[in-house]
């Protein structure tokens, strides 16, 4: 059993932040790694990326968007409540090294994961440019945290209610044209966003890493449900990833696979409401 020590609601309650007491995981978790959570005995296993950790307090932070039954159930939990299982850290950590200038692109809830990776890059001594986007002002998360980490930060919203109007690719294109010293781009967010970021960076020959979020069950390489095609080869996201070189990833296939259970998800949610 793992206790939730703090709960914070963001973006009008659609995005939730949990601080969970898990000392062993906090000790080991690195940026880019994830945990698998099973809320209760009848729950499903869902993967959530570690958004932050406090090694000394033994706390890991997860940030998730309420999309389905399990996340809805998690929203109903409060600080002090228990989560049945937290397994981790899983997946390969992001490769962090001092390379110069990196540009971190995040969209939606992806900013939560990006924040942890950006922090690691900053701590390694890189010049970090941040570009974060959201649909509108209210759905933008972790703005202050990102401001503290990044040397430069650009915010975009789809409807222009805050920051620049447009998608994250617009300021990215500007940076890629102006700055020749960008060594690496890190894009985390909706699959469609990552796809277009990769398309853009490829033109400028900037290596781009993406963090994928496929359907997963066990998260330990056992089921193969999280398989993605990378460079034409079948790879398992939970053991070979979740971070891959964006140029090699078949995003369309991933998008198709992620939509497989939308109907069941709805049924499950309806069942629990009843």
């Amino acid at each position: 059993m793992f206790q939730i020590v703090r709960k914070q609601e963001m973006a009008r309650g659609t995005i939730i932040r949990f601080d969970i007491n898990a000392p062993k995981i906090a000790k080991k978790a690195k940026a880019g790694q994830f945990v698998i959570i099973r809320v209760n005995e009848t729950g499903e296993r869902i993967p959530l990326t570690v958004a932050d950790k406090d090694e000394f307090a033994g706390i890991i932070t997860i940030i998730f968007q309420v999309v389905g039954k399990t996340t809805a159930l998690m929203r109903s939990l409060n600080s002090g409540d228990m989560i049945k299982d937290v397994v981790g850290p899983l997946g390969k950590p992001a490769e962090i090294e001092k390379i110069g200038t990196v540009v971190m692109i995040g969209g939606g809830t992806g900013v939560a994961i990006l924040h942890h990776v950006a922090k690691a890059f900053k701590e390694a001594g890189n010049y970090v440019i941040g570009i974060i986007g959201a649909q509108n002002k209210e759905l933008l998360i972790l703005e202050n945290e990102m401001k503290n980490i990044c040397d430069e930060l650009v915010i975009t919203t789809d409807d222009g209610s805050y920051g620049q109007q447009g998608f994250v690719t617009d300021p990215l294109k500007k940076y890629l044209e102006e700055r020749y010293d960008i060594k690496l781009a890190y894009a985390i967010g909706p699959i469609i966003m990552m796809k277009f970021v990769c398309k853009l960076t490829k033109q400028y020959k900037v290596k781009t890493m993406v963090s994928l979020n496929p359907i997963m069950i066990d998260g330990t390489g056992m089921c193969g449900g999280c398989r993605v095609k990378v460079k034409g080869e079948t790879r398992f996201c939970c053991v070979d990833g979740p971070d891959f070189d964006g140029d090699d990833v078949d995003f369309d296939e991933l998008m198709n696979r992620n939509q497989l259970y939308l109907k069941e998800e709805k049924d499950s949610l309806l069942f629990s409401i009843r």
């Binding site: 009848t42 729950g43 499903e44 039954k69 069950i217 069941e264 499950s268």
Partner: peptide, 11 residues
């Protein structure tokens, strides 16, 4: 225990 769906959450 997906065979007990939707009592168990895994479809």
């Amino acid at each position: 225990k997906a065979y007990k769906f939707p009592e168990y959450d895994t479809p």
